[in-house]
């Protein structure tokens, strides 16, 4: 464990907390893409399929359960309690292409042709693009509440911090996972335009509006 990775994981926890806080405090899921949230649920279930059968550490065990449970809880809240506040007319990204593309990527790039390794690789590729429905929705609305923007920002920080973590592990631990690293860089690049607009607007105290 190094500080980049710990910081990334904490930013990930913060993002989930921000999102659930926003939905429950406002009693509204407006501006949040349920498609992105469904994709994250799929990501965590496939990534952590061995949560009960393979022990790494108490830390990873607890975090995995939190990520699985909170993603399902978020989807459940959006689909049931706050269904009427959703924006299905602007949440129109075709996620079947993201899922299909991730299946193809996992078939080509995997560490081993076993079920667990294939679903692990699938989860890595799917996570790298799972934010796209949310960013697409943001683009269609043109502006967003700062809280929604902070959620996406915290999520982006999580993945961005994993890049120095991989550099650190490559240098000091002789550890390198090319699938996680390439997908992680793709994911961070997807956020880069968002980070730029975030810096230009939100950091200067303005409303988040896309130019």
């Amino acid at each position: 464990m190094n500080l980049f990775r710990l910081g990334g994981d904490l930013a990930h926890l913060v993002s989930i907390f921000i999102l659930l806080q926003k939905i429950t405090a406002n009693k509204s899921a407006a501006g949040i893409s349920i498609k992105t949230q469904i994709l994250y649920s799929i990501v965590y279930v496939t990534r952590y399929i061995d949560v009960f059968t393979k022990w790494i550490s108490l830390y990873t065990f607890v975090m995995k359960l939190i990520f699985i449970a909170s993603s399902f809880y978020t989807v459940w809240l959006m689909h049931n309690t706050y269904k009427s506040t959703q924006n299905p007319q602007i949440d129109t990204f075709k996620i079947r292409y993201l899922i299909g593309g991730s299946i193809i990527m996992a078939a080509i790039f995997n560490h081993k042709l076993t079920f667990n390794e294939l679903v692990w690789s699938f989860s890595i590729w799917l996570e790298s693009v799972a934010i796209l429905p949310q960013l697409f929705m943001l683009q269609r609305t043109g502006e967003a509440e700062n809280i929604t923007v902070h959620y996406i920002f915290a999520l982006g920080i999580y993945r961005a911090l994993y890049i120095p973590n991989w550099v650190y592990r490559w240098i000091f631990d002789q550890y390198f996972d090319y699938i996680a690293t390439v997908a992680g860089i793709i994911q961070t690049l997807i956020y880069s335009d968002f980070f730029y607009v975030y810096y230009q607007r939100v950091m200067k105290g303005k409303k988040f509006e896309l130019p």
Partner: peptide, 10 residues
């Protein structure tokens, strides 16, 4: 090599 791969990251 039947050793499974350790994915220790989240």
């Amino acid at each position: 090599d039947e050793k499974t791969i350790d994915h220790d990251e989240l």
